[in-house]
């Protein structure tokens, strides 16, 4: 049953994404790549925010740390990006674990402020540590990912790679969410004291959730770096953290499908609403408010509600 769920998530992503990769034209493919890369970060964010209830506004810093680690290793040190990806993930996860110990003593709004501060600090450091990061000029000339003679150097090819990784991430996340570890995270979010009373080490669960979210963020960052092949500080400023949060809330927190749907929707929405011009931001704000008030469980929650409604009707007609 559980295997079936994670398999379903992976197959749905590969089938739908694969189909779109064949019919869409170049610019839309680029947006789809951006969606896929964001979706991996948002699936990670869901561990911290959706499951463990950690209000973090610094997720973009973890994405940035992953991206910069890969950029530096593959340009200044000439590493293969394939080798740099796991190292970038490892570095970011360790960083999250180290910073998690002091940070996660804070709760709620205090944690939100501290993580926001972490993100702002990250931007300041990469902007000013010019010898390592190139400052505001960023790092260019990041090598492309390639398998033998096959280079992931156009939008369609990169999308295939991104989709496979996203499918793996989604399957992993669904499996984890339905395991004792996922339940422990949700227990910590719902009631820390009661969680302790079932033998759960609350601090450890929170740090694990943060590390997992950072690992996914780092993978997303390394994909960003090898897709755009250029990184700069503003790609990872705190506004991006808030966008990840918005993606998860719109899609539906606590759900892997919500993370993917939210990431895709908020990537494409600005393009669809381009006719609004600057009024888009007002629309975006109102939409987010409306979702928070009327759909606190996001689009995935709406789908579940409709299904339940349909189920009741069916039950009525058959009885």
């Amino acid at each position: 049953m559980r295997r079936y769920h994670s398999l379903l998530a992976a197959v749905a992503i590969l089938a739908l994404g694969g189909l779109l990769s064949l019919v869409l034209a170049d610019y839309r493919l680029r947006l789809l790549n951006v969606s896929v890369i964001s979706a991996i970060a948002v699936i990670g964010f869901n561990f911290a925010f959706g499951l463990a209830g950690l209000i973090s506004l610094g997720h973009a810093a973890f994405v940035g740390l992953g991206a910069y680690t890969l950029a530096i290793l593959s340009t200044a040190f000439g590493w293969s990006p394939w080798l740099a990806i796991p190292v970038a993930i490892l570095v970011t996860t360790l960083f999250a674990g180290l910073i998690g110990y002091p940070l996660l003593r804070l709760r709620g709004h205090y944690l939100a402020l501290a993580t926001l501060g972490l993100n702002v600090s990250f931007t300041i450091v990469v902007t000013n540590w010019i010898s390592l990061t190139g400052g505001t000029n960023g790092i260019s000339g990041i090598p492309e990912l390639r398998l033998g003679a096959f280079a992931f150097n156009d939008e369609r090819r990169f999308l295939w790679l991104g989709l496979v990784l996203l499918a793996l991430c989604a399957a992993f996340a669904v499996t984890l969410q339905r395991s004792r570890y996922g339940r422990a995270m949700m227990a910590v979010r719902d009631d820390e004291t009661a969680a302790r009373m079932t033998g759960i080490d609350v601090t450890r669960v929170k740090i694990t959730a943060l590390c997992l979210s950072a690992a996914f963020a780092a993978l997303s960052g390394t994909l960003f770096a090898t897709h755009v092949r250029f990184v700069a500080p503003e790609d990872f400023n705190y506004a991006h953290s808030i966008i990840y949060l918005a993606m998860l809330i719109v899609g539906g927190e606590g759900a892997v499908a919500g993370a993917v749907i939210g990431a895709a929707l908020l990537t494409f929405l600005p393009e669809w609403l381009r006719f609004l011009g600057d009024a888009y931001l007002a629309f975006f704000g109102l939409m987010l408010l409306a979702i928070l008030i009327f759909l606190p469980t996001g689009l995935v929650g709406l789908a579940a509600q409709l299904r339940r409604l349909g189920g009741h009707r069916e039950a009525e007609t058959t009885s």
């Binding site: 339940r183 949700m186 979010r189 004291t193 009661a194 969680a195 009373m197 079932t198």
Partner: peptide, 21 residues
């Protein structure tokens, strides 16, 4: 607890499974 503290987002079974884990 005096006022009963359950994990609101988990089902009845999942609440008990959290203990068994």
């Amino acid at each position: 607890f005096q006022h009963g503290r359950l994990f609101a987002r988990l089902s009845v079974l999942e609440n008990v499974m959290t203990g068994a884990a």
